[in-house]
């Protein structure tokens, strides 16, 4: 079997008396979309935050491509190649698409202009941004200097995903990418997700939308009471099975991997 991109074992996270993660495991294989579903309070967010570096875990190990990792901030995780698209998207509405895509990783001009005067290479950044956006089929956005606040919800999601996919990411975590979108825009974003996977970047998808999860996910990680209950193949189970497992109404049998 090939090596997992992300392999987490025995993660524990406590908030005071509350145990959010109770010896939880997680696996992500190359090129696959793993959806994480679970009831409210099951610990999905804590799991994702542990992987994306937003919270530090109390016990357990996380490996990225076989190497143990421990992050103290989302920035470190980003540098290591784990990019997260938050539900809030983390875009600056008044700044342009280019400025947003390169936020925190701007390109400076070469020579003295860049090293001494720290001048930005706007032309180069524009060119790369345009390239990345059209790779993902997002060039319906005509003017890449337009402020993000003038874009629709789906376009904003697109810019955020493009930013995550653009900079050598090994894993992209998408937190509720379709939660605030209409039917048409959700469709565009789902296609975008499949498009990113076809580029070989594995994706962790957190969503409450069962139809969307069952449509795009290769595996579904069901989270219950702070640990992995099971991992199922969406082709072999129905949505009602998944909901039953997730809420504890039914126990899984013969899941792809046992807890």
């Amino acid at each position: 079997m090939t090596q997992p991109v992300i392999k987490a074992r025995g993660l524990v996270k406590r908030y005071g008396k509350v145990t959010a993660l109770d010896h939880c495991d997680f696996d992500l294989m190359p090129g696959e979309i793993v959806a994480v579903i679970g009831d409210n309070g099951a610990g999905k967010s804590s799991l994702i935050k542990a992987i994306s570096g937003a919270v530090s875990i109390d016990a357990g190990t996380i490996e990225l491509e076989g190497k143990p990792i421990s992050f103290s901030s989302p920035l470190e995780a980003q540098d290591a190649g784990i990019a997260t698209v938050y539900q809030t998207l983390a875009l600056s509405p008044a700044l342009s698409i280019v400025d947003n895509m390169f936020m925190g990783r701007e390109i400076r001009k070469e020579g003295i202009a860049g090293s001494v005067f720290r001048a930005l290479d706007h032309a180069k950044m524009r060119e790369i941004a345009r390239e990345k956006l059209s790779e993902l089929g997002l060039m319906t956005i005509q003017n890449i200097d337009q402020p993000v606040e003038t874009l629709s919800g789906g376009q904003r999601q697109g810019v955020a995903v493009a930013r995550a996919a653009a900079f050598g990411s090994k894993v992209i975590i998408l937190d509720e990418p379709t939660a605030a979108l209409g039917v048409k825009e959700s469709r565009r974003v789902l296609e975008l997700i499949l498009d990113v996977r076809s580029r070989g970047i594995p994706i962790i998808l957190i969503s409450h939308n069962m139809p969307h999860v069952f449509e795009v996910a290769d595996k579904i990680h069901i989270h219950r009471l702070g640990k992995r209950l099971c991992v199922i193949d969406p082709k072999e189970y129905s949505m009602s099975d998944a909901v039953a497992f997730m809420t504890g109404a039914k126990l899984p049998e013969g899941a792809v991997e046992a807890a």
């Binding site: 980003q78 938050y86 809030t88 600056s92 509405p93 700044l95 400025d99 990783r105």
Partner: peptide, 14 residues
């Protein structure tokens, strides 16, 4: 500018 616009977003953007 990004911080003035939305500090939390700027932080998450790295």
């Amino acid at each position: 500018y990004a911080i003035g616009d939305d500090k939390d977003s700027a932080e998450l953007a790295g």
